[in-house]
Amino acid sequence: MNHSGFTKGLWASWLGFIILLVIWQCIATFKLINPAVFPGPLSIVHTAIFDVPGGRLLQHIGISLFRVALGFLFGLGAGVVLGVTCGWYLKLGSILRTPIELIRPIPPLAWIPIAIIWLGLGEPSKVLIIFLGAFFPVFTNTYKGMVTIDPLVVRAAQTLGLGGTKLLLRVVVPATLPDIATGMRIGWSYCFGCMVAAELIAANSGLGYLIMNARQVGEISIIIYGVIIIGVINLITDFIIQEVLIKRKLKWQYITT
């Protein structure tokens, strides 16, 4: 694409957003829909500045992110360890994978009721659901990466005298990293959805609670504000994982392919 086409494109991409905001504001300003039910962007900005104290908001964000991070890290760890084990020891793997594959079709959100029965309404049940959200994508992608690794890479390493654990840790696992990264990204977005759902259904803190509570008191602009905040945080964290962690650490993978 030539330069002028690019700048034109950039201009267009902002224009779309601005048009949307203007239409939205017009609906509210001209009261096409009752603004108490459908507040415009300006009143949401007003809510953001005056009605939701920044400190409280940061608290909610903090607790939500803490839950997601905790569940995600457990899920990532378990997914990678089990995925690598199943992909390296194939016979043990086909035994270990049997129960995992049986449980996998159940969406993580369907675990919410049983998680509450098992672990109560506190933190552990939420972390369990978020854990499940991360575990399955990470596990399946890691396993897939392990069994579809280029045999030439392994043979080359073996020719050079590598074997056993060294072969696994120095060659096979690094070659699987792009697949693990894919699983990580999918897992992270699942975790986010799981966190919101878990907080909606049972919590007294966090972003999900913020919007569910706003619903109970009928503060629609707070709900919309919360939804936007959740979206923005998801966007930022996904960007960090993709650009900073994956692209920087796995540069070599992207150069070769």
Binding site: K8, G16, V196, I230, N234, L235
Partner: peptide, 25 residues
């Protein structure tokens, strides 16, 4: 070009987070 940022943002909104909004509306 015009819709790309909107689509990117809308996709990153967790569907479940819209549940309270849908109930109100």
């Amino acid at each position: 070009r015009a819709t790309n940022p909107i689509i990117t943002f809308a996709r990153s909104i967790a569907v479940i987070s819209l549940l309270p909004l849908a109930i109100v509306w």
